[in-house]
Computed example of a mutant assay.
Amino acid sequence: MVKWSRFNVTSVVLGFALLYMPILLLVIFSFNSSQLVTVWAGFSFRWYGQLFDNQSLLDAAWTTLRVGVISATLATILGTLAAFTLVRHTRFRGRMLFSGMIYAPLVMPDVITGLSLLLLLVTIGFDRGFWTVALAHTTLTMCFVAVVVQSRLITFDRSIEEAALDLGASPVRAFFEVTLPLISPAVFSGWVLAFTLSLDDLVIASFTSGPGTTTLPMKIYSQVRRGVTPEINAVCTILIAVVTVGVIAASVITKRRELQRQRDEHAAAAL
């Protein structure tokens, strides 16, 4: 049994404190009855009630959710196809260029990505709005999905897929009925990651959004510049709760599907 020294314990405690104490304080002060966000005056749901009367914040939240769902779905489809191409087709002309273009957003600063997309939209004369933000987030998150799905495809047992092909299934049918269900935990994890990144983005959305298209991070940032209000604490708490529930649900579902996959593989091996 490994014994932790005082230094290790102190380092872990300080690390978690620096990470989660600000979030905890934000959640606590979202229930503060005082107008001053740094002075505790008692427990109250006052600001949550006023939050739901703030139509501009609700519109921004609804826009953010729609952008997140659409961009995460598109990114999951394109990222899965890209990962499948990189893993199954290791030799084709331009593979290195294709791989580099897929993973470029991982290391590209958001400012550069946002500015590049803005110049592209201006050049082609495409009006900025809801769909430009959704497409920009798809570009940003697709590479993350590709990384997650590719790591699963590398360890995928292709004998199961080959057995389906030997039994007469077409490659497309084998993919949708055999391969995709087995890699679905990774695909779902990629979708949740893409959705979370879309909810969090501020820089790229600022470059690619147009009049009447304001996401929640943009709305919060614009209000924080004039001072933090208790309503901002409330909406941030709700956003934290949504992301936390989503991550926990994704972890549980992924774990259950992985266990089911292992049982199916053991059953197939026994036969």
Score class of each variant (00 low, 15 high):
24 L>N: 12
222 S>G: 13
148 V>R: 00
257 R>G: 06
226 R>G: 04
270 A>P: 05
193 L>G: 07
243 V>Q: 12
104 A>E: 09
171 P>I: 03
113 T>K: 02
45 F>Y: 14
221 Y>R: 14
254 T>L: 06
73 T>R: 15
113 T>E: 12
76 T>S: 07
167 L>T: 04
253 I>A: 07
110 D>H: 15
2 V>Y: 15
171 P>W: 08
72 A>S: 11
92 F>H: 05
97 L>K: 03
52 F>G: 01
22 P>Y: 14
212 G>I: 09
157 D>I: 02
225 R>N: 15
209 S>E: 09
154 I>C: 05
86 L>M: 10
15 G>K: 04
113 T>G: 00
240 I>V: 10
82 A>Q: 02
268 A>I: 08
244 T>I: 03
84 F>I: 05
183 I>M: 10
94 G>C: 03
116 S>N: 02
209 S>Q: 07
139 T>E: 09
63 T>G: 05
206 S>D: 13
20 Y>A: 09
171 P>D: 12
183 I>S: 00
9 V>Q: 07
89 H>N: 07
250 A>H: 04
149 V>R: 03
241 A>E: 10
28 I>G: 04
67 V>A: 09
96 M>H: 02
60 A>H: 06
256 R>S: 05
189 S>G: 07
62 W>G: 01
181 P>I: 11
55 Q>Y: 13
73 T>L: 15
201 D>K: 00
249 A>K: 00
72 A>T: 09
109 P>F: 08
216 L>E: 13
218 M>P: 12
75 A>K: 00
227 G>D: 06
202 L>H: 06
206 S>K: 14
77 I>P: 05
225 R>Y: 14
56 S>C: 07
158 R>T: 01
9 V>C: 01
97 L>H: 01
177 E>P: 00
132 T>P: 00
15 G>C: 05
15 G>R: 07
218 M>F: 07
30 S>P: 12
5 S>L: 01
14 L>M: 15
216 L>W: 10
97 L>V: 04
124 I>T: 10
227 G>I: 01
253 I>F: 06
26 L>G: 08
5 S>R: 02
31 F>M: 11
103 Y>G: 10
231 E>F: 11
14 L>D: 01
255 K>Y: 11
182 L>N: 08
224 V>T: 08
135 L>F: 13
242 V>L: 12
245 V>I: 12
163 A>K: 00
20 Y>E: 09
263 R>G: 08
229 T>C: 06
176 F>D: 05
223 Q>S: 05
270 A>K: 13
48 Y>H: 04
159 S>I: 02
153 L>V: 05
205 A>Q: 02
255 K>Q: 03
136 A>P: 03
147 V>S: 03
142 M>G: 01
81 L>T: 05
70 I>H: 03
66 R>G: 07
58 L>C: 01
236 C>E: 15
238 I>Y: 09
107 V>E: 03
18 L>H: 10
48 Y>A: 02
132 T>V: 00
29 F>Q: 05
243 V>M: 15
140 L>S: 01
95 R>N: 11
3 K>L: 07
206 S>F: 06
143 C>I: 06
122 V>Q: 06
80 T>P: 10
80 T>N: 14
23 I>W: 09
264 D>I: 12
223 Q>I: 09
110 D>S: 15
42 G>R: 05
173 R>A: 15
